[in-house]
Computed example of a mutant assay.
Amino acid sequence: MSIILVTGPARSGKSEWAESLATKSSKSVIYLATAQVDSSDREWVKRIAQHKSRRPQSWQTCEVPHLGLIEAIANAPVSSCLLIDSLGTWVANLLAEDDVSWQESMQSLLLTLQQVQAQDVILVAEETGWGVVPAYPSGRVFRDRLGNLVRRIGAIAQAVYLVTGGYALNLTSLGTPLNQRLNNS
């Protein structure tokens, strides 16, 4: 089993890089989409359509916007490659959870990833903490939850890529891991 994390800023090419990794796996790909479709948001619908147009017809797509993501990961076939796009959207979908419920959801996801039967799991995550501190509490909660989740997944991943400026950097081979004892903050 291999966990691969692909992270980067908006429109950097992270989803495309993750898709290329899934294609190279030569396994049956299951695309787990965390987005909730809102037909009244034309820009969002267009964004989702762009992602769909790049995917091979042979890929199975499952929409799992909430805790269904954890169940889909747990029930994935052994011979599959899971492509989860994206963690930022998943965190946003669960933003209304209180801190205790969020910690339980995050721990459940991390435990499921460590026990998954699928041969490859590729996760896409946005980097949100490189800008100004959000002015509103919900923005700060989102940024902090996503940053913590990405760091925790990075600690269990066999490979972590940063995609920016149209380039993918393998942080696993270029970087030095931090002390991975993480608190629940």
Rank of each mutant, 00 (worst) to 15 (best):
M1Q: 07
M1Y: 05
S2I: 06
I3A: 00
I4H: 05
L5W: 12
V6H: 08
P9Y: 07
R11M: 12
R11E: 15
S12I: 05
G13H: 05
G13P: 04
S15K: 15
W17D: 12
W17L: 11
A18T: 09
A22H: 09
T23G: 12
K27T: 13
K27F: 10
S28R: 15
T34W: 10
D38P: 03
S39Y: 09
S39L: 14
W44S: 11
V45I: 12
K46D: 10
R47V: 13
R47M: 11
I48N: 13
A49L: 13
K52D: 10
S53F: 10
Q57C: 06
S58I: 11
W59V: 05
Q60C: 03
P65A: 06
L67V: 01
G68C: 03
L69A: 09
E71S: 14
A74V: 05
N75I: 00
V78C: 15
S79F: 08
S80N: 07
I84V: 10
D85G: 15
D85P: 15
S86P: 15
T89I: 09
V91S: 03
N93M: 12
L94C: 11
E97T: 09
D98K: 04
S101P: 06
Q103Y: 04
Q107P: 08
Q107K: 11
L109V: 00
T112P: 06
T112C: 07
L113C: 03
Q115R: 13
V116M: 04
D120Y: 06
V121A: 11
L123F: 08
E127W: 05
T128C: 07
T128P: 14
T128Q: 08
G129C: 01
G129I: 01
W130N: 14
V132W: 04
V132C: 04
V132F: 06
V133C: 06
V133T: 14
A135C: 07
Y136F: 14
Y136Q: 10
P137M: 01
G139P: 01
L149I: 00
R152S: 00
I153C: 03
A155L: 01
Q158Y: 04
V160T: 07
L162H: 02
G166Y: 12
Y167S: 15
A168M: 02
N170L: 02
L171E: 05
T172F: 08
L174T: 02
T176I: 15
L178T: 07
Q180V: 02
N183K: 04
N183L: 05
S185Q: 04
